[in-house]
Design a protein around this nucleic acid. Structure first.
Ligand code: MN
Ligand code: MN
Ligand code: MN
Ligand code: MN
Lengths: 219, 219
DNA sequence: CTAAGATGTTAGAATAATCTAACAAAATAT
DNA sequence: ATATTTTGTTAGATTATTCTAACATCTTAG
């Protein structure tokens, strides 16, 4: 049995993993707002459960079992977010905090029903893919808007690090998934972008914003 | 802040309270499947939070604050049950176990939305009243079917101690809230009742069943 | 009214999850 | 290459929730 606390560690490990699947104790500590010694002792515990590979002073890595369990928690989280947004009428900026709690419900029937009522969605309200029942995740590689060039037209496909504040910022400008953005110019001194979309007046987006908007070029 | 564990104790205290609002340590211990010494120490803790009146060897009683907090947990439980049944398609025998977990979500917006989507229901799927936002509960005094007499026609209005098994038993016989039952005869040796309803063949219900069906006589 | 039995409390310990302080190792910057 | 900073671990303590064993009180059946 995996406790609520352990589920949160697994989820964070999965989300922080770099290309090589590695996470540092310090990063995990910051992500969870839990002190490093606590993280170290939890890692030893998860290693005992064969969910994490742990060696002193080495980066942390989820085992295959750990990846699967983490994906299943992420599945519950994203299905919940989608249900809150699509079936209950919450905004995409509201769903994360509630899903953070509901994701820990232990009832396969509950999440199966949500999945069914939603018509087996592939993506959550932030454009993130929903892992399947075996924990398999179909990762699509989007581009950051900040990596695109002047003159290109792109489609907003996902948002990263979806703080409520960032999503409200996008709401205020009516930027959502599917919005087609044309890049008018890029200020070289701060990498901010002047863009146009939806027949609205031109907007300037800071580099911080452009980095968090994931887009597709082939629209 | 009231923890998940404390919420469960409060709920059990509220549900077990007799006419005088009293609960014994032993009953509470059995209800929660937690040993008596643990219950005693938790009662001291809740007394410290002014949620329970506690005196050694005396029956336990919720304070007014305790009653309100307990009612608010029960509100979350019953709204969840109703949502699971009405909006998600779960059977009344399935909703309790899931609601037992979802009731601990801390988000007023979540339960307000559920309430709104349901159209502000007054009763849960088992006929139990849903407390209002202030924890006020409109208790209706129903009769047990077992207290009714031969020849009477009554309407099933609620079920008590809603174990999944009992509810499946009722499902098998198509007895639900609203079913109009006519009492054909009562066996004096075991108090079982022969009843008819919905143009179905006569059924015999044991005393144990009749005690758990709450009915209204004025249909 | 007393002896059992049931109920309730105290004491001491365990587990899970967290912390601070101190120390150790690794990475970085002169 | 050494000193400094950052990162990670160990040790020891704390809080929340639970348990068993032993003892105390209350209730009930002769
Ligand atoms: Mn969580
Ligand atoms: Mn999301
Ligand atoms: Mn509960
Ligand atoms: Mn109910």
């Amino acid at each position: 049995m995996i406790s609520l606390t352990e589920e949160n560690y697994l989820k964070a490990l999965f989300n922080l993993a770099n290309h090589a699947g590695e996470v540092n104790v310090n990063e995990l500590s910051k992500q969870l707002d839990i002190k490093m010694p606590t993280v170290t002792s939890m890692m030893k515990k998860l290693a005992g459960k064969k969910l994490v590979y742990y060696e002193s002073y080495k980066p942390l890595r989820l085992t295959e079992k750990g990846k699967r369990e983490a994906s299943l928690v992420i599945r519950k989280h994203r299905l919940t977010e989608m249900f809150l947004a699509e079936k209950m009428g919450f905004g995409w900026e509201e769903v994360h905090d509630i899903a953070e709690q509901v994701e820990h419900v232990q009832s396969a029937a509950f999440f199966d029903k949500i999945n069914e009522l939603l018509g087996f969605p592939k993506l959550d309200p932030h454009g993130a893919p929903i892992p399947d029942k075996n924990g398999k995740l179909a990762w699509v590689a989007y581009d950051k808007l900040s990596d695109c060039h002047v003159g290109e037209t792109v489609r907003v496909s996902a948002v990263v690090h979806t703080s409520s504040e960032f999503l409200k910022f996008l709401n205020n400008r009516e930027i959502k998934l599917g919005t087609r953005i044309k890049i008018k110019s890029i200020e070289s001194f701060d990498s901010s972008m002047v863009i146009s979309y939806d027949n609205r007046p031109a907007e300037t987006l800071s580099h911080a914003v452009c980095e968090r908007l994931l887009v597709e070029k082939k629209v």
